[in-house]
């Protein structure tokens, strides 16, 4: 479905990615892991054309998307939940969900069953929501575009444990429904049971790729330990 091969990305003169390889197949949940500053978010930005990769290929459903503008990439069927609960603060919950919606399986009703809290707050400005609710809204907004591949960048970072559990519950539900997902997160205990595959980045390159079961303590200490 998504095949990222040997991409290199620069921020101005400084190179951030030195050859990232990543693959997500239909119905799969892939976790992208690595310590801070290893290139996870840059990889996501490259996939979405926000910082264009200068080398390598990014194929989505056999279409080369590396050089497409962001809105075309999103239209092709990728949905992004960006890092740090990015909603539109001055629009209501309902407007946030509806404006970028595209027809498909995900409707307001379905998002309301996934996150009943959003339903309760539908008329409120997004900025009046709690952090966790804003994160739910960001996920809901991405789902409303009916993406074939959902990309979650640090969806549970900086949230209260109770809210994290609720987000993870939603992610597990998405997995059960066969939603292809690329997941960036640090909580191994949550990722390992649900991920089909893990890809680990180190200093801007893919250094490990495999089933979660194969992710033994040696690999963990080497690439994920603090």
């Amino acid at each position: 479905m998504l095949k990222v091969a040997d991409i290199e990305t620069f921020y101005g003169p400084s190179q951030a990615l030195f050859g990232v390889n990543l693959e997500v197949n239909a119905g799969e949940m892939v976790a992208l892991m690595g310590r801070n500053g290893m290139g996870k978010t840059t990889t996501i930005r490259s996939i979405f054309g926000l910082t264009q990769a200068t080398r390598g290929t990014i194929e989505f459903e056999s279409q080369e998307i590396r050089r497409l503008p962001a809105y075309r990439i999103a239209k092709a069927g990728l949905g992004l939940v960006p890092e740090g609960r990015r909603c539109f603060p001055n629009l209501s919950v309902r407007e946030n969900l509806l404006v970028t919606a595209r027809p498909g399986e995900w409707t307001l009703e379905k998002v309301a069953t996934l996150f009943p809290r959003l339903e309760e707050r539908r008329a409120q400005m997004a900025k009046t929501l709690s952090g966790g609710e804003q994160q739910m809204l960001a996920i809901g907004r991405a789902l409303m575009t009916n993406p074939r591949l959902l990309v979650l960048d640090e969806a549970t970072e900086g949230l209260a444990p109770v809210i994290r559990q609720e987000i993870w519950r939603a992610i597990r539900l998405l997995k059960e429904q066969g939603q292809a997902t690329l997941l960036v997160d640090k909580s191994l205990s949550e990722i390992l049971p649900i991920a089909d595959r893990c890809t680990i980045l180190e200093k801007g390159s893919t250094v490990w790729d495999g089933k979660p079961a194969a992710l033994d303590s040696a690999v963990r200490d080497r690439y994920l330990g603090v």
């Binding site: 503008p69 962001a70 539109f88």
Partner: peptide, 24 residues
């Protein structure tokens, strides 16, 4: 209208609007 909300979104953050599939 939905157009107006999209215009507001384009003003607030056009990148975020683009990653949702609408060209500002």
């Amino acid at each position: 209208s939905r157009f107006g909300a999209a215009l507001t979104m384009a003003r607030l953050n056009d990148v975020r609007l683009a990653t949702a599939g609408i060209s500002p």
